[in-house]
Simulated assay, not measured.
Amino acid sequence: MGPSLFAEAGFDERQEKEALVALSMAPGVGPGRIRSLVARFGSAAAALQAPARVLATVPGIGPQTAAAVAAFDGHAAVTEQFERAERVDATLVTAWDPAFPPLLREIYDPPAFLWVRGTLAEADAKAIAIVGTRRATAYGKQVAYDFAAGLARHGFTVVSGLAYGIDAAAHRGALEAGGRTLAVLGSGVDRIYPARHARLAQAIIEQGALLSEYALGAAPDAPNFPRRNRLISGLTRGTLVVEAFETGGALITARLALEQNREVFAVPSPVHSRAGVGSNRLIQQGYARLVLSVEDMLAELGLILDEPPDEPAPVPPPALDPLERRLYDALDDTTPVHIDTLCTRTGLDPSTALVYLLNLEFKGLVRQMAGKQFFRA
C-alpha cells in the first residue's frame, strides 16, 4: 500500500498522527469534527496551530470547541499514548491511510483513526460480521463456529467483538479454519476484555487484528459498546446474527448494519429458546434474511464463491486405549453429545467417562461445550 494522503502532501507522518490523537482528546471533538478540521486546514497539525477565532469558522465547530482546541495542553498524554502503543506493538491507522478499511470509510460516522494490534489486509474488504448473545447455548456456539469456519474457507474475514458466547465461537471457528478474523474492542487495544480471552486475543493478533477507536488504556465501560458495534457492522458486507435475546448488543449491531445499508442475516433458533427470540424476531419482521448455510449467505450477497480447498484426507487418531476408543467412536464430528448420552452409548459411568474424555481433550481429539457436551475436534 502507498503512503497516506498526509505524507503525499508533505506532512510529517508521526507529527500528523500525534496531532490527530491530540484533537481526539480535546473536549467536544469527535471523529466528525476531526474530519471537518482536517478538511478545512489540510492536516490535524495545522488545525492544532490555528487560533480559536479561525477554528470557530469551521462548520460544526462552535466557539466553545474552538477554544478547547486552541487551548489544548495535553501533549504529555499524547506521548503516553504512543509509548503505550509501542509496549504492545500497536499502530495507529488513520482514515487517510491506504491501509484503513475501505468499507469503514463508507459509513455515516467513521472513526478518524484506529489503534491496531496485528495486521490489516486487503483481503479484509471481503468480511462478514458474526454477532450474538454472550449467554449463548451450545447450539448457538456450534452454529457460530461452523459459519465462521465456512466463511474463512471461502476466503472471508470474520469480524466480531471478542465477547463470551457467540463472538468467541466465531473467532475460534475462523482461526481453526486457518482464516483471518478481526476483533473490535470497546476498550483500548491494550485492555483485553474479557480478560479470560487473552489467549484468544493473541491468536487473533497472529491471524488478523484487534481494533479500537478508543485510547490505549481505556476501560471497557458500558457506553463504549453500542458505539463499538457500528464498527463491527461497518467493517463488513453483512452481519449474521446467530442468537440474540429480545434486547442486547447483537440487535443494536443488526440495526446499525441496516442503517449502513449492509445486509443482515439470521440463523433460526428453536421456538422455545429464549436465547434466540431476538434473532427469530429479526427474521419474522423482515429485518434479516433467514440463512441455513454459508452458501445461503453468499448467494444473497450475489458473491462468487471461492472454491474451498480440498478437504484433507482424514487422519486416523493416534493409538487409543480401549476406553478412549469407545468414547471417541461414540462421539460425533459436528453435533455435541451430552455426557449422559455418552454413558448410555458406552456403558461407562459418568466419573470414568469424564476422566477418559479429559485424556482425549489433552490429545486434541475432543472439544467440550457448555453443559458437559462433547464432540470430536
Rank of each mutant, 00 (worst) to 15 (best):
S43N: 12
E300A: 15
T352G: 00
F156S: 01
E263Q: 14
A177I: 08
F362K: 09
Q64M: 11
W115G: 01
T335E: 15
G178A: 11
F225V: 02
G286S: 12
A299W: 09
A250H: 11
A26T: 13
S187K: 10
H338P: 04
D167P: 06
A203C: 00
A136R: 02
L258A: 14
F100K: 01
A266D: 03
Q260M: 08
N359D: 14
A174P: 03
P194F: 13
N280V: 08
L258W: 09
I252S: 04
T253M: 10
G161V: 05
E263Y: 13
S36K: 15
G179C: 10
D349G: 04
E122N: 04
A257M: 06
R134T: 07
R196W: 04
K141F: 00
D333P: 15
A177K: 11
P102C: 06
V131G: 02
V158P: 00
E213H: 02
V38F: 09
V131D: 03
L175G: 01
A168Y: 09
G178M: 09
V29S: 02
S273T: 05
A22H: 02
E176F: 08
P220H: 12
V189P: 03
A39Q: 15
S160K: 02
A123Q: 13
Q368W: 00
R135I: 00
P110D: 05
V355C: 00
E263N: 08
K126P: 01
A209S: 13
A123Y: 01
S233L: 06
Y287I: 00
L23G: 05
V58F: 06
A46I: 03
Y164F: 15
A22Q: 07
A198G: 06
D190A: 11
I304R: 13
